[in-house]
Each structure stands twice: as structure tokens, then as C-alpha cells.
């Protein structure tokens, strides 16, 4: 029973017994130990599915999708560029929502997810910018163009950098988490501006190709592998987020008995 009490004392003052069963998963999710054990079970399957979907999308997109009439084979970088840009933006929302959950329900687990989401999102933003630059050279004749969407992606990279810098600036874990959660929430104000920027400062970049409300303006044979790649990137993001979060759990909970047991068991075995 002792593990039970230290498991829940860290999350919310009321134990799970007082709450209705339908909410129990929410409280359980707040327990780093429960999350660590459960995610350990999910992780192999999730990684396998992510790998399969990514491999399918890549082979389909790079080898079997038809060539673009104007851009030839150089358009194929879209299968990396667009999913990375997608995840870079949703990743910011995931980070901010995790921070908001932490601020509202005082769940330390969601602060760990927030901290884990920042570097992943930053790397994806960088990938989107880098592939965009590589794609820009044959298409526009320049690696870097000061276009609205490129600039807003760069601003997004700065926003990620700010959250990460603030996270590392504080020695106290609690202050670091809450301060960067507030910053992440303030930063979400910038995301609608990023999305609106296409309409505001339309310059060189083509307008958004994928719209949820209308049919895609891409050919279906080109679009399907892109869709597969986007799903694959989401799965990959989930795997990366879980791995980073598990790392953070072990780092923050290193003084608890269950982590010590885990480490000694690993060392002994």
C-alpha cells in the first residue's frame, strides 16, 4: 500500500477512491510511475506501427508517386517538408495544452510532457525550414526568401527556443515548469497569426495546398502518400514524445523508491 500512497500523493490531494471511476484514468495519467509502466508496454507497438507507416509513405512518395509536371522529382521533398511543418505547429499546441493542464490541475506529469515537447517541436520546425530551403533553391532560385510562411516558421522556432531557454534558466523545477507554461500559453497567441499570415502577406510562397473543407488541389496519386506521411509523422511524434517524457520522469523521480528499484534491477540484471 505504501507505493499507492506515494503514487497519488504527488498528483492531487484527493485519492482516486473519492472520484467516479470514469475519471480514474485522468488521475492515473497524473502518476509518473503509472505512465512510465504503461508507456513501456505501448512503446514497442507504437514504434512498430510508426516505422511501418513511415516506411510505406516514404517508399510510396519517393518511388511510386508520379513526377510533378513543372518541378520534376524535386517536389518529392514535400513528403518530408509538409509533415514536419504540420507537426511543428501542432507540437506547439500540444506543448501549450500540456502546460495549461499543468497550470490548472497542478499535474506535474503534464509539465514533464510539456518539457519533452519543446525540443522535439524545435527540431521539427528546423527540419521544415531546412527542407523548405533545399526545395526553394530549384523552385524559386534562392535558398532563403523572406516570405510570410517562412518567416512565421522562423518565429515559431524562436518561440520554441524561448520556452526551452526559460525552462533551463530556473534551478527550481516547479518555477521552470510554471514559467514556461505561461510563456507557451502566451505564445499560442502567435499561432493564429502564423495561419493568417498566408492571407496577410502573400508573397512568393504558394497558398496552403491542403484544406480540410475542400478537395485538395494536388493530384490524388501525389496526395495519398503525403497523407500517409503526415500520419506517420504524428505517430513518430508520439513515440518521440513518450521517449522524452520517460527520460524526464526518470530524471525528476530519481529519488523515489520505484526508480531506484528499476535502476538497481537493470544494473543487477
Amino acid at each position: 500500500m505504501s507505493w499507492l500512497s506515494d503514487k497519488f500523493s504527488s498528483t492531487l490531494s484527493g485519492g482516486p477512491s473519492k472520484e467516479s471511476p470514469s475519471w480514474q484514468w485522468f488521475y492515473r495519467l497524473g502518476s509518473p510511475r503509472w505512465f512510465y509502466q504503461r508507456s513501456g508496454q505501448w512503446l514497442p507497438w507504437l514504434s512498430l506501427v510508426a516505422l511501418l507507416v513511415l516506411a510505406t509513405g516514404l517508399v510510396w512518395g519517393l518511388a511510386f508517386a508520379p513526377e510533378d509536371a513543372k518541378q520534376g522529382n524535386s517536389f518529392r521533398i514535400i513528403y518530408i517538408h509538409v509533415p514536419a511543418a504540420f507537426l511543428a505547429q501542432s507540437g506547439y499546441f500540444i506543448m501549450a495544452i500540456a502546460g495549461a493542464i499543468g497550470l490548472i490541475w497542478k499535474m506535474k506529469m503534464s509539465y514533464m510532457v510539456m518539457k519533452a515537447a519543446a525540443p522535439i517541436g524545435a527540431v521539427l520546425t528546423f527540419i521544415a525550414l531546412f527542407t523548405g530551403a533545399v526545395w526553394g533553391k530549384p523552385t524559386w532560385g534562392a535558398y532563403w526568401v523572406w516570405d510570410a510562411r517562412i518567416t512565421s516558421m522562423l518565429i515559431l522556432l524562436f518561440l520554441y527556443a524561448g520556452v526551452m531557454a526559460l525552462q533551463y534558466a530556473y534551478h527550481s523545477v516547479d518555477a521552470a515548469s510554471r514559467a514556461s507554461a505561461i510563456l507557451a500559453l502566451v505564445g499560442t497567441v502567435n499561432i493564429p497569426i502564423i495561419n493568417k499570415s498566408v492571407d496577410w502577406w502573400y508573397t512568393l510562397h504558394q497558398p496552403a495546398t491542403i484544406k480540410l473543407t475542400s478537395a485538395p488541389s494536388m493530384h490524388m496519386d501525389m496526395f495519398m502518400p503525403l497523407l500517409v506521411m503526415i500520419v506517420g509523422f504524428y505517430l513518430f511524434y508520439a513515440v518521440a514524445l513518450i521517449l522524452h517524457t520517460r527520460n524526464e520522469i526518470l530524471r525528476r523521480e530519481r529519488k523515489t523508491s520505484w526508480v531506484r528499484e528499476l535502476v538497481t534491477a537493470k544494473a543487477g540484471g
Binding site: I155, F158, L159, A165, L183, G187, N190
Partner: peptide, 9 residues
């Protein structure tokens, strides 16, 4: 570093 992105709009 934190504030500069918000100054851009």
C-alpha cells in the same frame, strides 16, 4: 529572447 518573437507582428 523571450519577447522578441511577440514584437514581430
Amino acid at each position: 529572447l523571450l519577447v522578441m518573437p511577440f514584437y514581430m507582428p
